[in-house]
Amino acid sequence: MLPFLFEWVWDMGHYVFHGAVWAVLSIIGMGMTFCIIKSVVDTMQGKTGHDPHH
């Protein structure tokens, strides 16, 4: 999983596979972080979440 482990090889298979894995994890992680931070901000601004959507 990480480049310092002995089975790691710098080859196409590892680029593609781990590239995709880390990309997906980043998207999920950033998406959730965004939601949580925005919710904290919204809450501090006194929004209740029941405002009409869009």
């Binding site: 998406g31 939601c35 919710s39 809450t43 209740t48 979440g49």
Partner: peptide, 16 residues
């Protein structure tokens, strides 16, 4: 309120 906001924001990001 926090959960209500979270729900709202997560719905907005749901497509991603």
């Amino acid at each position: 309120p926090f959960f209500a906001n979270l729900t709202h924001n997560m719905h907005s990001a749901m497509a991603v």
